[in-house]
Design a protein around this nucleic acid. Sequence first.
DNA 1: GCTGATTAGTTGCAAGTGAAACTAATGTCA
DNA 2: TGACATTAGTTTCACTTGCAACTAATCAGC
Lengths: 164, 164
Amino acid sequence: MSTTPKTADGERALHLEQFVPYRINVAAVFASRALARIYGEQFGIGIPEWRVIAQLGEFGRMTSRDIGELSQMHKTKVSRAVSGLDQRGLVARSENRADRRESFVSLTAAGARVYAQIVPLALAFEQRWTEGIAPDELRTFERVLAVLTERGRLLAGTYREDGA
Amino acid sequence: MSTTPKTADGERALHLEQFVPYRINVAAVFASRALARIYGEQFGIGIPEWRVIAQLGEFGRMTSRDIGELSQMHKTKVSRAVSGLDQRGLVARSENRADRRESFVSLTAAGARVYAQIVPLALAFEQRWTEGIAPDELRTFERVLAVLTERGRLLAGTYREDGA
DNA sequence: GCTGATTAGTTGCAAGTGAAACTAATGTCA
DNA sequence: TGACATTAGTTTCACTTGCAACTAATCAGC
């Protein structure tokens, strides 16, 4: 694939359309946009809200801090997403008497219904998106993706989107 | 890797941390952040500006429309990036007498110097980022990424970020 | 148990974003 | 030639975002 092109003076040249950080970004934008359509148009839910719902649906009651850590979101993003979902009655907050700084967030019955409706749509999207790709190639893809994610986290520096 | 987990009632369950659209997004965010550090801190340049410079450095004089098409950016994003770079003297605009709606954009000498400085840094980043990954695995990764990008473009609907 | 550091979460603010409307120029077709 | 559609690029607007500052609560060490 990349044949390490060089300029006349021996320097390696850059071709944006082959530059992996750029390419992964473009792919991510398309995937996000397609997914956002699904839960945006049909449920009026954005990506941060979706991530909150997904975490709560999977793990049950948890704090905003844990939601942010698991879903890789900045604490302000989590805060706003939870507030919005709370106002719309999809999640409920309950005080933690043992530590009154934090509060537990959980899906309401309405929120659980939304979760149950979105999950099959999300999985169907992933299915259509990766359809026809050989399973072993997909596994390789996912393995490399995991390496790049972890190394990217380091190269991005001390910053973590959960705010620490 | 993904063993297609199911819930008690036979429905496939969703695990966000294994959900490919989510994972690719997280990886993209880390990569963008790390790269943005490089040309942000050292050159005061953001991602859209960087993409404009990269295209002009690779292809020479071109219109904003073409820049947007090649670098997958919305025309308003291109417009703002070009304006900013123009004000800072890194690009110049020249009228196309044959079609006065559009204008040609090209790197100035200063812009070309910035380009020449950033390219090796960007390539070095990519190198560090993908270091240690077996070449054939990386090729598979890139091939699958290309498929996902193209299919994502379709699944995202008629929308194209270049505005058409 | 008191003082300073840390943590969970919220809010103000400035910057960035895309959709839609807009301007100016060009293309199309009768 | 004239009327209408299309295109390149800009601007306006509403919305999202992350950072920094903030509040309230808990922890650490003496």
